[in-house]
Protein backbone atom coordinates (compact mmCIF):
# COMPACT_ATOMS: atom_id res chain seq x y z
CA UNK A 1 0.00 0.00 0.00
CA UNK A 2 1.28 3.42 -0.90
CA UNK A 3 1.27 5.92 1.95
CA UNK A 4 -1.01 8.90 1.15
CA UNK A 5 0.88 12.15 0.64
CA UNK A 6 1.11 14.53 3.55
CA UNK A 7 0.66 17.50 1.26
CA UNK A 8 -0.91 17.27 -2.16
CA UNK A 9 -1.01 20.25 -4.50
CA UNK A 10 -2.65 20.02 -7.90
CA UNK A 11 -2.72 22.75 -10.51
CA UNK A 12 -2.93 25.42 -7.82
CA UNK A 13 -3.54 28.97 -9.10
CA UNK A 14 -3.75 32.28 -7.23
CA UNK A 15 -4.50 35.54 -8.99
CA UNK A 16 -4.61 38.98 -7.43
CA UNK A 17 -6.58 40.99 -9.95
CA UNK A 18 -4.79 40.57 -13.26
CA UNK A 19 -1.57 39.45 -11.58
CA UNK A 20 -0.98 35.71 -11.43
CA UNK A 21 1.05 35.06 -8.31
CA UNK A 22 0.89 31.27 -8.49
CA UNK A 23 0.51 29.61 -11.85
CA UNK A 24 -0.67 25.96 -12.01
CA UNK A 25 1.68 24.62 -9.37
CA UNK A 26 1.60 20.90 -8.53
CA UNK A 27 3.65 18.81 -6.11
CA UNK A 28 3.24 16.10 -3.52
CA UNK A 29 5.12 15.72 -0.28
CA UNK A 30 5.39 12.49 1.70
CA UNK A 31 5.20 12.30 5.48
CA UNK A 32 8.47 13.19 7.22
CA UNK A 33 9.93 14.81 4.16
CA UNK A 34 11.71 18.17 4.14
CA UNK A 35 10.50 19.93 1.03
CA UNK A 36 11.93 23.27 -0.05
CA UNK A 37 10.45 25.96 -2.24
CA UNK A 38 13.39 27.85 -3.67
CA UNK A 39 12.99 31.09 -5.55
CA UNK A 40 13.54 34.83 -5.52
CA UNK A 41 11.39 37.24 -3.51
CA UNK A 42 8.02 37.73 -5.16
CA UNK A 43 8.13 34.40 -7.01
CA UNK A 44 5.00 33.15 -5.23
CA UNK A 45 6.49 30.96 -2.48
CA UNK A 46 4.72 32.71 0.38
CA UNK A 47 1.44 32.75 -1.52
CA UNK A 48 1.62 28.96 -1.91
CA UNK A 49 2.29 28.51 1.83
CA UNK A 50 -0.52 30.89 2.77
CA UNK A 51 -2.96 28.93 0.61
CA UNK A 52 -1.86 25.69 2.24
CA UNK A 53 -2.45 27.20 5.70
CA UNK A 54 -5.92 28.35 4.71
CA UNK A 55 -4.98 32.02 4.94
CA UNK A 56 -5.69 32.68 1.27
CA UNK A 57 -8.30 31.01 -0.90
CA UNK A 58 -6.95 29.46 -4.12
CA UNK A 59 -8.32 30.90 -7.37
CA UNK A 60 -8.23 27.48 -9.00
CA UNK A 61 -6.83 23.99 -8.50
CA UNK A 62 -6.89 22.07 -5.26
CA UNK A 63 -4.65 21.36 -2.34
CA UNK A 64 -4.91 19.14 0.68
CA UNK A 65 -2.90 18.91 3.88
CA UNK A 66 -3.00 15.64 5.86
CA UNK A 67 -6.10 14.75 3.86
CA UNK A 68 -8.06 17.97 4.46
CA UNK A 69 -8.98 20.28 1.62
CA UNK A 70 -7.42 23.67 2.38
CA UNK A 71 -10.22 25.67 0.76
CA UNK A 72 -13.12 23.72 2.28
CA UNK A 73 -11.79 22.66 5.68
CA UNK A 74 -9.33 25.36 6.72
CA UNK A 75 -10.08 24.92 10.45
CA UNK A 76 -9.28 21.20 10.29
CA UNK A 77 -6.08 22.01 8.44
CA UNK A 78 -5.07 24.59 11.05
CA UNK A 79 -5.46 22.04 13.83
CA UNK A 80 -2.81 19.83 12.27
CA UNK A 81 -0.25 22.35 11.14
CA UNK A 82 2.33 24.64 12.60
CA UNK A 83 3.07 27.86 10.76
CA UNK A 84 5.91 30.32 11.04
CA UNK A 85 5.19 33.39 8.95
CA UNK A 86 7.81 35.29 7.05
CA UNK A 87 7.92 38.24 9.39
CA UNK A 88 8.75 37.46 13.00
CA UNK A 89 5.31 37.44 14.50
CA UNK A 90 5.35 36.64 18.18
CA UNK A 91 4.22 39.32 20.61
CA UNK A 92 7.20 41.51 21.46
CA UNK A 93 5.49 42.91 24.54
CA UNK A 94 4.91 39.46 26.01
CA UNK A 95 7.47 37.53 28.01
CA UNK A 96 8.98 34.38 26.50
CA UNK A 97 6.86 32.18 28.75
CA UNK A 98 3.71 34.22 28.05
CA UNK A 99 4.08 33.74 24.30
CA UNK A 100 4.47 30.00 24.82
CA UNK A 101 1.48 29.81 27.17
CA UNK A 102 -0.61 31.84 24.71
CA UNK A 103 0.05 29.54 21.78
CA UNK A 104 -0.26 26.42 23.92
CA UNK A 105 -3.71 27.68 24.94
CA UNK A 106 -4.69 28.43 21.34
CA UNK A 107 -3.61 25.00 20.17
CA UNK A 108 -5.45 23.30 23.00
CA UNK A 109 -2.36 21.81 24.66
CA UNK A 110 -3.53 20.90 28.14
CA UNK A 111 -2.99 18.87 31.28
CA UNK A 112 0.48 17.53 31.94
CA UNK A 113 1.33 18.09 28.30
CA UNK A 114 1.02 21.88 28.80
CA UNK A 115 4.04 22.11 31.11
CA UNK A 116 5.91 19.36 29.29
CA UNK A 117 5.65 20.89 25.82
CA UNK A 118 6.49 24.40 27.03
CA UNK A 119 9.51 22.98 28.83
CA UNK A 120 10.52 21.18 25.66
CA UNK A 121 10.17 24.35 23.56
CA UNK A 122 12.26 26.36 26.03
CA UNK A 123 14.96 23.68 25.93
CA UNK A 124 14.89 23.54 22.16
CA UNK A 125 15.09 27.32 21.76
CA UNK A 126 17.91 27.51 24.32
CA UNK A 127 15.79 29.84 26.42
CA UNK A 128 15.72 27.88 29.69
CA UNK A 129 16.20 30.41 32.45
CA UNK A 130 15.16 33.28 30.18
CA UNK A 131 11.42 32.69 30.52
CA UNK A 132 10.82 36.12 32.05
CA UNK A 133 12.57 38.09 29.30
CA UNK A 134 10.42 40.23 27.05
CA UNK A 135 10.37 38.63 23.63
CA UNK A 136 11.19 41.94 21.95
CA UNK A 137 14.54 41.96 23.77
CA UNK A 138 15.71 38.65 22.28
CA UNK A 139 18.31 38.49 19.52
CA UNK A 140 17.27 37.20 16.07
CA UNK A 141 18.35 33.59 16.47
CA UNK A 142 16.55 33.11 19.79
CA UNK A 143 13.41 34.84 18.56
CA UNK A 144 13.28 32.58 15.56
CA UNK A 145 13.78 29.41 17.58
CA UNK A 146 11.11 30.59 20.01
CA UNK A 147 8.76 31.17 17.07
CA UNK A 148 9.43 27.64 15.88
CA UNK A 149 8.80 26.37 19.41
CA UNK A 150 5.45 28.21 19.53
CA UNK A 151 4.47 26.81 16.14
CA UNK A 152 5.06 23.18 17.08
CA UNK A 153 3.84 23.11 20.71
CA UNK A 154 0.89 20.94 19.69
CA UNK A 155 3.06 18.40 17.83
CA UNK A 156 1.64 19.18 14.40
CA UNK A 157 2.09 16.63 11.63
CA UNK A 158 3.01 19.33 9.12
CA UNK A 159 5.09 22.44 9.66
CA UNK A 160 5.16 25.39 7.26
CA UNK A 161 8.17 27.66 7.52
CA UNK A 162 8.15 30.80 5.40
CA UNK A 163 11.68 32.21 5.06
CA UNK A 164 12.43 31.10 8.61
CA UNK A 165 16.05 32.15 8.71
CA UNK A 166 15.87 35.55 7.01
CA UNK A 167 18.07 37.97 8.91
CA UNK A 168 19.52 35.37 11.27
CA UNK A 169 23.26 34.83 11.74
CA UNK A 170 24.85 31.76 10.08
CA UNK A 171 25.49 29.89 13.34
CA UNK A 172 21.85 30.25 14.40
CA UNK A 173 20.73 29.18 10.95
CA UNK A 174 22.72 26.03 11.27
CA UNK A 175 21.26 25.27 14.69
CA UNK A 176 17.81 25.94 13.29
CA UNK A 177 18.31 23.40 10.52
CA UNK A 178 19.45 20.81 13.01
CA UNK A 179 16.08 21.26 14.74
CA UNK A 180 14.25 20.85 11.46
CA UNK A 181 16.08 17.63 10.74
CA UNK A 182 15.20 16.34 14.20
CA UNK A 183 11.52 17.04 13.57
CA UNK A 184 11.71 15.35 10.21
CA UNK A 185 13.27 12.30 11.85
CA UNK A 186 10.25 12.22 14.19
CA UNK A 187 7.98 11.98 11.14
CA UNK A 188 6.97 15.65 10.85
CA UNK A 189 6.54 16.92 7.30
CA UNK A 190 8.32 20.22 6.72
CA UNK A 191 7.60 22.65 3.90
CA UNK A 192 10.11 25.48 3.91
CA UNK A 193 10.64 28.43 1.60
CA UNK A 194 14.01 30.06 1.18
CA UNK A 195 16.16 32.02 -1.17
CA UNK A 196 19.36 30.85 0.48
CA UNK A 197 21.11 28.29 -1.69
CA UNK A 198 22.95 26.63 1.17
CA UNK A 199 19.69 26.10 3.00
CA UNK A 200 18.12 24.54 -0.04
CA UNK A 201 20.86 21.91 0.11
CA UNK A 202 19.46 20.74 3.49
CA UNK A 203 16.13 19.78 1.90
CA UNK A 204 15.25 16.24 0.79
CA UNK A 205 13.50 17.61 -2.25
CA UNK A 206 13.16 21.00 -3.86
CA UNK A 207 10.91 22.87 -6.23
CA UNK A 208 12.52 25.80 -7.99
CA UNK A 209 10.02 28.60 -8.44
CA UNK A 210 10.22 31.55 -10.75
CA UNK A 211 7.40 34.00 -11.50
CA UNK A 212 4.77 31.73 -9.95
CA UNK A 213 5.77 28.58 -11.85
CA UNK A 214 7.77 25.55 -10.86
CA UNK A 215 10.73 25.44 -13.24
CA UNK A 216 12.41 22.34 -11.83
CA UNK A 217 11.93 19.77 -9.12
CA UNK A 218 13.79 16.93 -7.46
CA UNK A 219 16.53 16.36 -4.92
CA UNK A 220 19.28 18.99 -4.83
CA UNK A 221 21.72 16.65 -6.59
CA UNK A 222 19.19 15.70 -9.26
CA UNK A 223 18.48 19.33 -10.01
CA UNK A 224 22.16 20.17 -10.24
CA UNK A 225 22.80 17.19 -12.49
CA UNK A 226 19.97 17.78 -14.91
CA UNK A 227 19.74 21.56 -15.03
CA UNK A 228 23.07 22.07 -16.70
CA UNK A 229 23.60 20.46 -20.10
CA UNK A 230 27.35 20.39 -20.42
CA UNK A 231 30.36 20.94 -18.18
CA UNK A 232 31.00 23.84 -15.86
CA UNK A 233 34.27 25.80 -15.81
CA UNK A 234 35.40 28.37 -13.27
CA UNK A 235 37.36 31.20 -14.91
CA UNK A 236 39.28 33.83 -12.96
CA UNK A 237 40.56 36.59 -15.19
CA UNK A 238 41.25 40.33 -15.33
CA UNK A 239 39.58 42.44 -16.54
CA UNK A 240 36.49 40.39 -15.83
CA UNK A 241 34.10 42.26 -18.14
CA UNK A 242 36.25 41.93 -21.22
CA UNK A 243 36.90 38.27 -20.45
CA UNK A 244 33.14 37.62 -20.25
CA UNK A 245 32.50 39.32 -23.60
CA UNK A 246 35.25 37.32 -25.23
CA UNK A 247 34.23 33.98 -23.75
CA UNK A 248 30.61 34.38 -24.79
CA UNK A 249 31.72 34.58 -28.44
CA UNK A 250 33.83 31.41 -28.32
CA UNK A 251 32.54 28.26 -30.07
CA UNK A 252 31.62 25.48 -27.65
CA UNK A 253 30.46 27.95 -24.96
CA UNK A 254 26.77 27.49 -24.06
CA UNK A 255 26.47 30.10 -21.34
CA UNK A 256 28.62 32.36 -19.20
CA UNK A 257 27.81 34.46 -16.15
CA UNK A 258 29.56 36.39 -13.42
CA UNK A 259 29.67 34.65 -10.04
CA UNK A 260 31.26 36.84 -7.45
CA UNK A 261 34.77 37.71 -8.60
CA UNK A 262 34.91 34.95 -11.21
CA UNK A 263 33.03 33.59 -14.22
CA UNK A 264 31.05 30.38 -14.45
CA UNK A 265 31.11 29.10 -18.02
CA UNK A 266 29.00 26.24 -19.34
CA UNK A 267 30.74 24.41 -22.18
CA UNK A 268 30.04 21.32 -24.27
CA UNK A 269 33.34 19.64 -23.29
CA UNK A 270 35.44 20.78 -20.37
CA UNK A 271 38.92 19.61 -21.41
CA UNK A 272 38.86 21.04 -24.89
CA UNK A 273 37.30 24.32 -23.81
CA UNK A 274 39.91 24.76 -21.10
CA UNK A 275 42.72 24.93 -23.66
CA UNK A 276 40.79 26.95 -26.22
CA UNK A 277 39.61 29.55 -23.69
CA UNK A 278 43.12 29.97 -22.25
CA UNK A 279 44.47 30.61 -25.72
CA UNK A 280 41.70 33.00 -26.68
CA UNK A 281 42.03 35.04 -23.50
CA UNK A 282 45.82 35.20 -23.78
CA UNK A 283 45.73 36.40 -27.37
CA UNK A 284 43.30 39.17 -26.43
CA UNK A 285 45.54 40.30 -23.58
CA UNK A 286 43.20 39.16 -20.80
CA UNK A 287 45.18 37.63 -17.98
CA UNK A 288 43.59 34.35 -16.83
CA UNK A 289 44.83 33.20 -13.46
CA UNK A 290 42.63 30.13 -13.20
CA UNK A 291 40.52 27.96 -15.52
CA UNK A 292 39.26 24.69 -14.08
CA UNK A 293 36.21 22.43 -14.08
CA UNK A 294 33.94 22.61 -11.02
CA UNK A 295 30.83 20.81 -9.81
CA UNK A 296 27.69 22.86 -10.44
CA UNK A 297 25.95 24.40 -7.42
CA UNK A 298 22.22 24.93 -7.00
CA UNK A 299 22.79 28.51 -7.91
CA UNK A 300 24.30 27.47 -11.25
CA UNK A 301 21.26 25.33 -11.81
CA UNK A 302 18.97 28.19 -10.96
CA UNK A 303 20.79 30.58 -13.26
CA UNK A 304 20.70 28.04 -16.05
CA UNK A 305 16.96 27.50 -15.59
CA UNK A 306 15.77 31.06 -15.09
CA UNK A 307 18.56 33.37 -16.15
CA UNK A 308 18.58 35.05 -12.74
CA UNK A 309 19.84 34.60 -9.20
CA UNK A 310 17.32 33.39 -6.64
CA UNK A 311 18.57 35.77 -3.98
CA UNK A 312 18.38 38.73 -6.32
CA UNK A 313 21.21 41.15 -5.69
CA UNK A 314 22.04 39.78 -2.20
CA UNK A 315 23.76 36.60 -3.27
CA UNK A 316 24.13 33.67 -0.96
CA UNK A 317 27.42 31.76 -0.83
Amino acid sequence: MVEPPSILVEELVKRFGSFTAVDRVSFRIAGGEIFGLLGPNGSGKSTIIRMLCGLLTPTAGRASVVGFNVAKEPEEVRRHIGYMSQKFSLYDDLRVIENLEFFAGLYGVKGTLFKERIGWALEMAGLKGSEALLTGELAGGWKQRLALGCAVLHRPRVVFLDEPTAGVDPLSRRRFWELIHQMSADGVTVLVTTHYMDEAEYCNRLALIDAGRIVAGGSPSEIKRTAIRGDLLLVECAPLGRGLELIKRQPGVLDAAVFGAALHVVVTAAERARIELAAALASAGVEASRIEPIAPSLEDAFVALTGGHPGGSERAQ
Binding site: R78, I81, S85, F88, S89, L90, Y91
Partner: peptide
Protein backbone atom coordinates in the same frame (compact mmCIF):
# COMPACT_ATOMS: atom_id res chain seq x y z
CA UNK B 1 -0.14 46.76 12.32
CA UNK B 2 2.35 44.66 14.28
CA UNK B 3 2.15 41.79 11.79
CA UNK B 4 0.94 39.29 14.38
CA UNK B 5 -2.45 38.77 12.75
CA UNK B 6 -1.18 36.26 10.20
CA UNK B 7 0.11 33.98 12.94
CA UNK B 8 -3.13 34.33 14.88
CA UNK B 9 -5.27 33.44 11.86
CA UNK B 10 -3.15 30.35 11.25
CA UNK B 11 -4.14 28.91 14.65
CA UNK B 12 -7.37 26.94 15.17
CA UNK B 13 -8.96 29.84 17.13
CA UNK B 14 -12.26 30.79 15.48
Amino acid sequence: ERGTMEQLIATPAT
